[in-house]
Design a protein around this nucleic acid. Sequence first.
DNA 1: CCTACCGATCGGTAGG
DNA 2: CCTACCGATCGGTAGG
Lengths: 206, 206
Amino acid sequence: MSAGEPKVSASSGGYAKGRARREQIVALAAEAYGDVGYHGASLREIAKRAGISHVGLLYYFPNREALLAAVLERRDEQDSALLAPRVSSPRAVVQHLLDLAEHNARHAGMVDLYVRLAAEAVAEDHPAHSYFVEHYASTRAYVQRALGELAEQGMLREGVDAQAAAAGFVALMDGLQVQWLTSPGEVDMAGVLRAYVQQLLREPLQ
Amino acid sequence: MSAGEPKVSASSGGYAKGRARREQIVALAAEAYGDVGYHGASLREIAKRAGISHVGLLYYFPNREALLAAVLERRDEQDSALLAPRVSSPRAVVQHLLDLAEHNARHAGMVDLYVRLAAEAVAEDHPAHSYFVEHYASTRAYVQRALGELAEQGMLREGVDAQAAAAGFVALMDGLQVQWLTSPGEVDMAGVLRAYVQQLLREPLQ
DNA sequence: CCTACCGATCGGTAGG
DNA sequence: CCTACCGATCGGTAGG
């Protein structure tokens, strides 16, 4: 072990500091992607926000894509904490998705990051493409499962197809975010989502 | 009028040829935006598709933004031809929007252009920002008007708010396009839209 | 429409 | 973490 290397000590060690710094950089990068998109956020731009050189960034991440991957990982961790509550009845899931929409409305930066990346990542060779393929599949499955259970309990209107309704719910959420970011104040995200869900249910929510 | 200038003759004049070439370039640019996004489509990339140098492009358009503006103008012309049929009953409008979704599903390039630009243009300083602000406002108004007339004829379910439902319809269309581009085959755009409309109506369509 | 060229910016490497 | 540097690419101008 050479002299200048940080130690893995349990006390106050350099590794913990490095990890914290890394996480701080990931948060700043997420902000930058939200502000100017992935394409627009150069390593130099992000580095400036972190107060280092762009080469300093490459000390923490091997290349630009690795930084993006870290940002997406972080987003998933935060979201799953929000999305997957401990106790989950179907109605609770629906309520949680509505809560998530209200939560998003208070965090425009994250919504912006998500909307821009999702559109860029439509291209098959985009570094975040497979992330979004999986993201959509699992989100659809999550909502579909909740709707399916509501159906079993006879809570859905007749003629409602859980699969189509789930894809619709996810699409609605995405589309509302674009409209809302484009003209905030013109669109009530949670309100439209609630109206959508009401139309699926035999009896109104709450 | 100087000697080298093309004439505005009604016969076979240079202007007509220039205009045709210009339109051809706009079409090629739209394709390029669809393939790699506005950010990704450099003047050199588009010029290559047109078989000229990137400076040749600047002979037809003063700068990069002017080319984008021309592409958006063209899209609007094509869309309004599709969107605004001669005879327009409310039900016809709804049917036309469903038709438009089916039309889109056969023209992935245009959808791609639209989705990518809409996301990029969320930024207030994006050259296409005001275009999308107006696009969303007018599309929402268009759908809302149709739904309002359906409501007057007692064709909407009780509790359906035309304004929220219109924003929802537009959002659904946008969101479905992203999912469909990301994983074609996983999402049936027209099917989900039809299901949405059915839920709004007292009696099923057709 | 062209060639030639500009200043700016990009991601990444060498070497410490 | 840094400086110094690389080759590639960008939109745009000069001048024809």
